[in-house]
Design a protein around this nucleic acid. Sequence first.
DNA 1: GCAATAGTGTCTTTGAGACAGTATTAT
DNA 2: ATAATACTGTCTCAAAGACACTATTGC
Lengths: 252, 252
Amino acid sequence: MPYDPSAFPPFAVTVDLVVLTVRRHALCALAVRRGEPPFQGRWALPGGFVRGDEDLETAAARELAEETGLLAHDPAGPVAPNAAHLEQLATYGDPGRDPRMRVVSVAHLALAPDLPAPRPGGDARSVSWVPVEELLHPAGYGRDGDVRAPLAFDHARILADGVERARSKIEYSSLATAFCPQEFTVGELRRVYEAVWGVALDPRNFHRKVTGTPGFLVPTGGTTTRQGGRPAQLFRAGGATLLNPPMLRPEA
Amino acid sequence: MPYDPSAFPPFAVTVDLVVLTVRRHALCALAVRRGEPPFQGRWALPGGFVRGDEDLETAAARELAEETGLLAHDPAGPVAPNAAHLEQLATYGDPGRDPRMRVVSVAHLALAPDLPAPRPGGDARSVSWVPVEELLHPAGYGRDGDVRAPLAFDHARILADGVERARSKIEYSSLATAFCPQEFTVGELRRVYEAVWGVALDPRNFHRKVTGTPGFLVPTGGTTTRQGGRPAQLFRAGGATLLNPPMLRPEA
DNA sequence: GCAATAGTGTCTTTGAGACAGTATTAT
DNA sequence: ATAATACTGTCTCAAAGACACTATTGC
């Protein structure tokens, strides 16, 4: 096929972000309330245009920083205190997904520790952490006047894909630690797994398994009693990225 | 951010294809020889522009049919004789990846049974099955006058990502059967795993494991002796898409 | 004392991997 | 007969899951 610049249809390219965290035992996603049509007043995923001289990952990291103040975690660099995991998720480009124009969106998945509160970026949109269940199945929820409407555009599908990616990736990688602060206990890590998978895990088997997987956790020496009960050892994430043996998600 | 159609930079959007098959005990990918600059004379992955009214998966299926005559396999529909597995792989959009213009490419991964020979599409480019080792590490190969040059553009990285996706997906899904004809033996399926992973597997343990995983294989009743030796049972792919227990890739 | 969380030990079952041995074809 | 491939059985070890038990805090 000859390359004729006028022969290809023009596209807009955006990045959309599925930013997940665990708050109060629930898996939550960052959502923005739309202030204008289409889908005015509905929740949407944060995102924006890719600039002309910017690669996709840089655009995603820029949007993430603008929305949350989080830095994308560079696996080669030092561990920043406000670092989040960031990876490409999938690309969505159905012709009718945005009624205004042809937009191809490269969705990214970010996993962040629990943050005090999302601080709005330069613009004045309302940005919040919303439980994933509430965004994906809005009919069953909606106390205190929340808008019980599905996500704008095809963002429900994008969020569902991101959640499923997170659920499967914490099985065989150490990514669950991306939801934890820099130092955390085994119990806190277990509550991350329980919130993301939506199951209850046996604390005793979990403890034995997670401390026995080489490279997953490194004890820092400190202890904490912030969960109540007997003081728990503090750990930080070890160097391993792939877990062997993996953590297995209960079936049923 | 207000939506001003003139405010976003224009992109071209293409689909590139990583089409894999197993031929003569080697994992091979479909490659086209470039007939014009840039990268004239080098191997590249097949691909083309996404049309203005076409979604991404349709564009990938169209390119696949144009290059190989294969139909993308619809999981809900009937099993066509010339069906291939097709899924989105990842998106590549670095500003400099194509020296002519800003191109974002949505790569797709296709897995196909061994075909007689690739038939060129409407245009006259040379299309061949090339062992992935030869494409990814061209220095060590290159008998009979082959061009020992790396793939054009960033296609080596795309191919490597596709190969790694295939290697990991046949662990926990029944996708390895996409490399086999409609009816196949346990030995033929084992040779697929051996070629994709580049390892030797114990035929006895493999047989026991693969026939014991529920929903993976369904006996057709027939037998064949096309591999020599004792006649082997013929199977077709069962309904299961996720394997439980999974096939484990040897480590070391 | 009680409640709560942390951590260890022990038993059973499942499955992975090594490998002996039998079955059925082509030559 | 020999070689080649297909298939079955048996053993050992690793790990998952169930669950009894002990440890250390706050109240």
